[in-house]
Nucleic acid binder design. Structure first.
Lengths: 230, 230
DNA sequence: GTCAAATGAATTGTCGACAACATCCAGACT
DNA sequence: AGTCTGGATGTTGTCGACAATTCATTTGAC
């Protein structure tokens, strides 16, 4: 039965197209999740044949999946020797955060220059404040990601969005290795609303300074996180 | 004749280790060159089997090479339909140049903040001025790339360098499609020395404004270039 | 005993064949 | 005439086997 005929007999709701996801994408997603959750630690060696056996697929999709993760910057390959989860160095963490700062500053500038509405940022702010009140770390992290993703999205710049997304994967990875007590939920949540206010007021200097400071604060937290992994 | 036998008879100088470059890299380089030179125009369909026949290799390295180019942003894949050289839209050109501006501004800020020496930028400037005098477009372009590559390199930020490099590939592609008369050699060459002066003087505002203006000037040139390709 | 060459194990690199999927066209049926 | 069906074709997706390369270990000569 082809996809077009699907809805003729019974009126069924739109569940969207049936996605036939290639194996390489499934494999890449599984590996990525494992890396980002910290289950696959930096430095772990990834052997194609072993992974192929574990997942019951041939090596071809595994290779392609690993190449995808390599583009994400999560894995590195050494020819004829092996592939491994990219080790996190202090330098790399600094670079990730500083590049993220540049991306978000660019987004802020673009939003103000083009007079883009910023209402979409209010909801994530509320969610974060609520999560902070409930001492809900997961919720806070989700809200934080939603906030920054939205910030990048409304900047309406596909290339920036793609670059930011790739970079944010590594931030996920770094945060997963960070211990819980390092987070001050209330402080993180209350950082965001002033950014939205400055954007709404089209106050370029204030908005840039706030987003810049916000990103730099996060960077400060991580030196000892790195020490644990290398 | 194989590469190993080539130099045995005559005493040869040290050309470094013999790099055994994987086929995928060789293929990727050939395809990339073809795309950047404009020989493979945006929209051209890339068929794995056809390329494999042409280059006398199997499909595996071709696939991996195409995936490399996909990461470079030069090729896009549509599942079960085909792969093609990514079409250049006006929007994409705008995004490429605006992101490049952000990258170079970041490099400038970093160079000034960290008090990095900028002497390495003088040589490319000289080369460009000389090339402009000789009406040597190739030389000027090479000098321009050397200047900006050096700018990024002395910023000492691997992630920034990698991102910039990938972005610059597309700028190559765009420039290759641009007609010769659009270039004002003298103007381009003389744009660069003031940037170095501002950097050397650690004058943040002036340096940022100059590099920003320089990048924006380039962007202005391209609308009609795009019209020709899409 | 020490150093160099050979061997072997582990891993990625490459290949050719077949499967899955989408598109297009021809032909049958209404 | 129009439309649906079925197959032919072109392309990517996946597989299993073999080749190439590296590194560690063992072997052998001196």
């Amino acid at each position: 039965m082809s996809i077009e005929e699907a809805g003729t007999a019974t009126p069924m709701e739109d569940i969207g197209p049936i996605e036939n996801v290639p194996l390489r994408v499934q494999v890449a997603n599984r590996l990525r999740t494992a890396i980002l959750s910290g289950r696959l630690k930096p430095g772990t060696s990834l052997v194609e044949t072993a992974l192929a056996d574990q997942m019951n697929v041939s090596r071809a999709p595994i290779r392609e999946a690993i190449q995808i993760l390599e583009n994400d910057g999560l894995v590195e390959t050494i020819a004829y020797k092996g592939k491994r989860v990219k080790p996190l160095t202090a330098r790399e963490v600094e670079e990730v955060y500083s590049l993220r700062e540049a991306f978000e500053v660019m987004a802020v500038q673009r939003i103000i220059e083009r007079n883009t509405p910023v209402d979409a940022l209010r909801a994530p702010c509320e969610a974060m404040l609520k999560a902070a009140g409930d001492d809900d770390l997961e919720g806070l992290v989700a809200g934080d990601e939603a906030f920054h993703r939205t910030l990048i999205e409304i900047a309406d710049h596909d290339l920036l969005a793609a670059s930011w997304k790739s970079l944010y994967l590594r931030i996920h990875q770094i945060m997963a290795l960070r211990s819980r007590k390092d987070h001050d939920l209330q402080a993180i949540a209350s950082n965001h609303p002033p950014i939205v206010d400055a954007l709404a007021a089209r106050d370029m200097d204030r908005a840039v300074n706030l987003i810049s400071a916000h990103t730099r604060n996060l960077k400060e937290l991580d030196p000892e996180t790195i020490a644990k992994t290398t």
